[in-house]
């Protein structure tokens, strides 16, 4: 691949940001006008939400388990092993639940969207759709956007719950805590702001996963190799965006609710 001069490279990056913004803006605008492809929305909800359930449950559960195991070493130093529930629940609800769920769904679905739409693009199916009078953003992007934002919200709640349950299992079976003490500590430490923070993040992550996945799919060129490239880029970019936006949302939430 030839090395591009810096100005050309910069122009390309700016053009990409512009294209992404237009795609995301249109996808949002199409939510508020007819027709809405409800069949596609429910199909995507099933694929993204129900399809991601096993990995979300497994990753959430074992994250809770390992969090309890790791934290007990430090808490022992201060004689605060009974605070394990508090640490696990706060970590899961505020940070690990939303971010891990976002990253897992990104790996699974941003890749899926980029490859599916990318394959359609390189075989002219997107052009065929446009030629048949169907707007591909309305038909392909908007349903994925609605489905991802909606389902990621609930997947995050499930990840939080199973993570806390995983922490409970380890605390009771390996650390000698009672279930009621762990659960009381978990429940008591969570305040309104923590829940709001934890459930705001998946809304942003869902938006990032769907728009980035579809964006790289829609701009795929170069045959099957191009589809592979688009898939990789979609996962990398959406994962980085999720972590960056997580930081921004966390800072904003601290500003609103305090630490």
């Amino acid at each position: 691949m030839p090395l591009l001069p810096p100005d050309v490279l910069l122009k390309k990056q700016v053009a990409s940001v512009q294209e992404y913004s237009i795609l995301a803006g249109r996808a949002i605008a199409d939510i508020f006008s007819r027709p809405l492809y409800w069949d596609d929305i429910f199909t995507q909800m099933d694929s993204i939400g129900v399809g991601s359930l096993p990995i979300i449950i497994l990753s959430g559960f074992f994250t809770g388990c390992v969090l309890a195991l790791q934290s007990v070493t430090a808490l022992k130093e201060f004689g605060a092993v009974s605070m394990t529930g508090s640490l696990v629940s706060l970590s899961m609800v505020k940070e690990l639940g939303p971010v891990l769920t976002g990253l897992m769904v990104s790996g699974r679905n941003a890749a899926g969207m980029a490859s599916e739409i990318g394959s359609m693009k390189v075989t002219e199916q997107i052009d065929a759709m446009r030629a048949l009078g169907t707007d591909p953003i309305r038909k392909l992007v908007t349903p994925r956007l609605i489905a991802t934002v909606f389902m990621l919200f609930f997947l995050t709640i499930i990840a939080d719950a199973v993570g806390i349950a995983g922490g409970a299992l380890v605390s009771v079976s390996m650390l000698g805590l009672t279930a009621s003490s762990y659960l009381h500590s978990s429940y008591a430490s969570l305040v309104h702001g923590d829940i709001v923070q934890g459930l705001t993040k998946p809304l942003f992550s869902g938006f990032i996963i769907a728009t980035v996945g579809c964006f790289f799919g829609m701009r795929t060129t170069g045959g099957t190799q191009g589809v592979g490239r688009a898939t990789t880029q979609a996962v990398v970019v959406s994962s980085v965006f999720i972590i960056v936006v997580d930081f921004i949302v966390t800072r904003a939430m601290i500003g609103i609710f305090g630490s």
Partner: peptide, 19 residues
């Protein structure tokens, strides 16, 4: 534009059927 395209049929080089 999408409305106008409903009056136009197009046959693509590689057929472009939805697989």
């Amino acid at each position: 534009l999408y409305k106008l395209r409903t009056r136009i049929g197009m046959v693509f080089q590689e057929s472009a059927l939805f697989d």
